[in-house]
Amino acid sequence: MFRSKAVVPIRPKRSDDKSWFQPVNIRPGQIAIRFDLGLAVQDDLILKGQIDAAAAVLERQLSKFRKAKGISEKAGRNRKRAQVLLQLRILDALAIEATHAHHANLVWGPDTSEKKFVDAMKSALDMAQEGYLSLAAIGNKVPTVK
Rank of each mutant, 00 (worst) to 15 (best):
M1E: 07
F2V: 11
F2G: 09
R3W: 13
R3E: 15
S4R: 10
S4T: 07
S4D: 04
A6D: 09
A6E: 04
V7R: 07
V7Q: 01
P9T: 08
I10T: 06
I10E: 02
I10Q: 02
R11C: 11
K13M: 13
K13C: 10
S19A: 10
S19V: 11
S19K: 13
P23R: 13
V24C: 02
N25P: 00
I26D: 03
R27W: 09
R27Y: 13
G29C: 05
A32H: 06
A32G: 10
D36L: 05
L39T: 04
A40N: 04
D43H: 07
D44S: 14
L45D: 09
I46D: 01
K48A: 09
G49N: 10
G49L: 09
Q50I: 03
I51F: 11
D52E: 14
A53G: 12
A56L: 14
V57D: 09
V57F: 09
L58D: 01
R60Y: 04
S63K: 15
F65Y: 11
F65C: 08
R66Y: 05
R66F: 05
R66N: 08
K67A: 15
G70D: 04
I71Q: 11
I71T: 12
I71H: 12
I71E: 12
E73I: 08
K74R: 15
K74T: 09
G76P: 03
G76K: 05
R77Q: 15
R79G: 06
K80F: 06
V84G: 11
V84S: 13
L85H: 06
Q87E: 13
Q87P: 01
L88P: 00
R89Y: 05
D92C: 12
D92T: 14
A93H: 00
A93D: 01
A95F: 01
A95G: 10
I96M: 09
T99W: 06
A101H: 07
A101F: 03
H103L: 05
H103F: 01
A104C: 08
A104W: 02
N105C: 04
L106H: 02
V107H: 05
V107P: 02
V107W: 01
W108V: 03
P110K: 15
T112P: 03
T112F: 00
K115V: 05
K115W: 09
K115E: 02
F117K: 00
F117Y: 02
F117P: 00
F117N: 00
D119M: 11
A120H: 06
A120D: 01
M121Y: 04
S123M: 06
A124G: 13
A124V: 08
D126K: 14
D126I: 08
A128M: 04
A128Y: 05
Q129R: 15
Q129V: 12
Y132Q: 12
Y132N: 09
Y132D: 04
L133R: 07
L133E: 01
S134V: 14
S134T: 13
S134Y: 07
L135N: 08
A136H: 08
A137E: 08
I138L: 14
G139E: 00
G139Q: 02
N140H: 10
N140L: 14
K141R: 15
K141A: 15
V142F: 02
V142G: 06
K146T: 12
